[in-house]
Design a protein around this nucleic acid. Structure first.
Lengths: 223, 223
DNA sequence: TGATTTTCATACTGTCTCGCATAATATAAA
DNA sequence: TTTATATTATGCGAGACAGTATGAAAATCA
């Protein structure tokens, strides 16, 4: 909510949503980088080492952009971090939104959500990346109010999505009438958080899947 | 497990465990600091800002020790971080071990454990500190194998303590025979992790206590 | 062709970083 | 008092850091 979009996607403005091969004919020297892929590289670096341990030289090398280009395209290091985080959230949301909305049985929906989460958390060439929201909460969130607000928003969004799932399942009779969607949602998020953290410590996928299975059983068993 | 004690408590060596007011008459110039309180200050700083964002100047200012004294007493920055972490674990364990061992009903034991955890996570003058194990997992654990091993050990230790609790409760008939202590233990740890992370985002204590209450109900209700 | 616009590339500045070298200081032992 | 020992205090030095200034390069427009 803080840092409201402003001109986040300014470099996308010329392309009118539908992929337009009709080149807009920009005026000056053409860019030597693609903002989207550069941002993805920056995101990966931030996810690996965190804000403080990632230098602009590292970012410059990873994106192939030199320092002034980085500033021109994304602003200073903090802004780049924030844009990376927004990108992460957008990607994660896009990967899960269909499952959160569809009509499968609750157990199956949860299983698929966690499978996608594990894919995200365990990806990365030089080791698992974990959850960027959790990492940011652990590092920058205490001292930076703007970033803290974004992290908090991320938690709330996930809680609400899970709660909606459980509410729906209760209405369909998959869960007992006494089930409390909000409480179950917190436990579902807690499961997300624990696998995200354990993934950073290189706990193997099999163990994380076992935790997920146990959590689903506990949350969905008839009371 | 890595960095095995070696000479961790070298400065405690003269004091033979029982508090000895018989001054050991050390040879040279006396210390101007107390290692224990200095380490506590360093720990607090690391918990607040993390490894990378904490400079030796910060540590020097906080502890009142100048740089060479820091090196002499604790080694380089990484060693100081590791010793801070060990101190944190020792303190946390000391605060919880009685409750993990005693004979109260399971719900009450869990409630007390979480209350202590919240005290630890929410302490700190300039904002909540969260859980140092979780913070370290989120930052240094991916790239530093030694630190990763310590974090992993921390996770396992907590899982085992919770599992022992649940096993004991099942034997006493507080939980159904079908309850799986290891599975419940993972959920209990997940609850620890989620409140630790949310605390960093300044979620108020009341909300965290509500999460804890819901988790205890879910874990302890008759299946 | 020449003017304009946008980006790239190099290099710079002042500050901070870690770790250590050196010397002064305060105690105990001889 | 002298010597040995252990600590404090100052500060150096090579490098990393974030951010910017300057000028060259590559495109469009007139």
């Amino acid at each position: 909510m803080v840092q409201k979009s402003k001109k986040l996607s300014s470099f996308k403005a010329p392309a009118p949503k539908v992929d337009a091969p009709a080149a807009p004919k920009r005026r000056g020297r053409p860019r030597a980088y693609e903002p989207d892929v550069a941002l993805a590289k920056a995101l990966d670096l931030f996810r690996k080492d965190g804000f403080a341990a990632t230098s602009l030289d590292d970012l410059s090398a990873a994106t192939g952009m030199n320092r002034p280009s980085l500033y021109g395209a994304f602003g200073d290091k903090r802004e780049l971090y924030i844009k990376s985080y927004q990108r992460y959230r957008d990607d994660a949301r896009a990967a899960m939104i269909d499952i959160f909305r569809n009509e499968q049985p609750i157990r199956e929906r949860l299983a698929r959500i966690y499978a996608i989460a594990l894919d995200i958390y365990l990806s990365g060439e030089s080791g698992p990346r974990g959850c960027f929201t959790v990492m940011t909460a652990a590092s920058e969130a205490v001292s930076d109010p703007g970033i803290r607000a974004m992290v908090l928003e991320g938690f709330v969004e996930l809680d609400k999505a899970f709660a909606a799932c459980f509410r729906h399942a209760r209405e369909k009779g998959e869960l007992p009438a006494t089930a409390e969607p909000e409480v179950l949602a917190k436990m579902a998020s807690a499961t997300i958080h624990t696998i995200a953290i354990r993934a950073r410590a290189r706990v193997p996928r099999g163990e994380l899947e076992a935790i997920v299975k146990g959590a689903i059983d506990l949350m969905c068993r008839a009371a």
